[in-house]
Design a protein around this nucleic acid. Sequence first.
DNA 1: ATTCGGAATGTAATCCATTACATTTGCTTG
DNA 2: CAAGCAAATGTAATGGATTACATTCCGAAT
Lengths: 337, 337
Amino acid sequence: MVKIADVAREANVSVATVSRVLNKKGSVRPETCERVYKAIEKLSFEPNMSARNLRRNETRVILIVAPNITNPYYAHILAGVGDEARKSGYSALIYNTGGDEEREKNGMDMLKKRRADGAILLASNLDSMWLSEYADKYPIVHCSEYVKGLDIPRVSIDNYKATLEVMEYIISLGHKKIATISSSNSYISTLLRLKGYKDTLERHGIKVRKDYIALADAEYSFKSGKAAAFKLLQQKDRPTAIFCISDTIALGAITAAKEMGLRVPEDLTVTGFDDVDYTTMFHPYITTVAQPCYDLGRKSFKILHACMNKTNDIEKKVVLPHKFIIRESSAPISICD
Amino acid sequence: MVKIADVAREANVSVATVSRVLNKKGSVRPETCERVYKAIEKLSFEPNMSARNLRRNETRVILIVAPNITNPYYAHILAGVGDEARKSGYSALIYNTGGDEEREKNGMDMLKKRRADGAILLASNLDSMWLSEYADKYPIVHCSEYVKGLDIPRVSIDNYKATLEVMEYIISLGHKKIATISSSNSYISTLLRLKGYKDTLERHGIKVRKDYIALADAEYSFKSGKAAAFKLLQQKDRPTAIFCISDTIALGAITAAKEMGLRVPEDLTVTGFDDVDYTTMFHPYITTVAQPCYDLGRKSFKILHACMNKTNDIEKKVVLPHKFIIRESSAPISICD
DNA sequence: ATTCGGAATGTAATCCATTACATTTGCTTG
DNA sequence: CAAGCAAATGTAATGGATTACATTCCGAAT
């Protein structure tokens, strides 16, 4: 293991000088500098990060706590965080929780142990008050989901407003019997989307029916979406439109509808949310709300970076623009209905 | 920052004893042990990893070098590596290369800098001989792709054999005009799948036609798969079956076929590869080769772990079983043809 | 009672880069 | 030419956990 002392000996200078060259701090004569570089090159020296981290009390590593990196939605955010982090010389440690809060806490202990300088949380439950304890001591940023009432910086889209747009659109198509497939998880986005659904119906004088609200599982799985859709569509007074809170669920709904002999969008309008890759991989292309996942990730890192550097003006609430995209899975209610 | 000395003072013992308790090494009287635990609890002490890493000359971090974590195939492997690593007390640093070899090298420098103890490479080009330089010095494992001729442990399926199975099946359906959509990348799997395609045709006395071999882009994008399929299908003497080297490409091919008014599988048989999530999210469900992604990841970590511990009997070539799954996108050649 | 041995605990060196502080070098200026 | 000052470089302390080696303690054996 080549260390700084070896380089110093080789270059005939002191370790301090080598360090100065390494960090471009303090003044060093150009020729000395050159000698040091030569020595570094010759011995192919690479500074030991553990030693540097110990001394500097930082790791240049950030932690990303995600429930499931297999989900393309999270994967895209991850990619954004990772790319932005790399640009600033940071590496990303990924901690997959599988939605388990206990594992989420274990992940956060990485901060205590100084394995990472800060964390980006991708999917905290809206009532995870225990987070405040960590937030007081370490730089933390919420991305996409967040805990209400905690003073932790967050980046997300406006889920409520996006839902209003979708719902207004569905209603403008003439639909009155509008169902929703929500989820059993406790994310703020789930809550806001459900609220947006209910509020729009009420504003239009349409009664919110309990039997028009179905739940998919916490991970928005295709299977559970399909099952929820079956439940909704098998009722005697079946809905003509389903507002799904994720694309995978929408996909499940479309599949369920097809298997029941219903055509989408002719017999049933289905909308999704997030706009993951496969919304346009087959017909009908899904009408959905596109989230700027990659940018959510990038912005989250930028804010975390600011927090870690103790910059003063830290943005506490960043809302990135979404995009409502009308495609093929939605259509005016058919006249024969 | 609470350190080991503070705990020692609080518990009225020396730092050595605290360390012994922490690492369960050496003998400590139970009651002393208890006192130390109490002190740790009281001060809520967490060992500083940088210091520990420096002393132990290890990081308990592994590096995963992936071309694109957004691709569900890689994401599943990642999940497997991550879960298995966590079980052994390791964390996973993810380095996204975007397929850029330069970035792959930068990633590997994490090893030199002691930021990670070992690395799992998910997508090395088959001719990346420069890797041997690293492999000599650091624990490295190849997962899914590998470099021919290098003595680096690897985990993968038998791409050649799997391809033979698919091809034999397609031929058994009566197809003679069989095309393939390969990729412009330089992965060993791409090579083997193409070779499997050609070899099977030849064994059956079917000439390999250049105009039946199309190329998708390096990332197997849906778009490029669709474009390649268009090219194949617009020929006067169009193929009746397409062997695609990835599911995304198969999806593109199916979409292209549909847009041209061809039915799958009645007019065209399409097969995929990998069995990612969305192969059964819509009809026709894709006939494909299922790879045990999660287990490929887990096994890769296990081997890396063995390497890092300098265990003697390290498995150099692990081949995990694949599964050929016949679904809806393939069918006997129609009689009217 | 004395000695021996192992368990229990302590002291101090070590890992390596950074940096405060000290020293030297070299130039400018009166 | 000496003083003064800045630039250049060096010395040694520092960060926190681990661990080789040293010491103390206590019971068993003689």
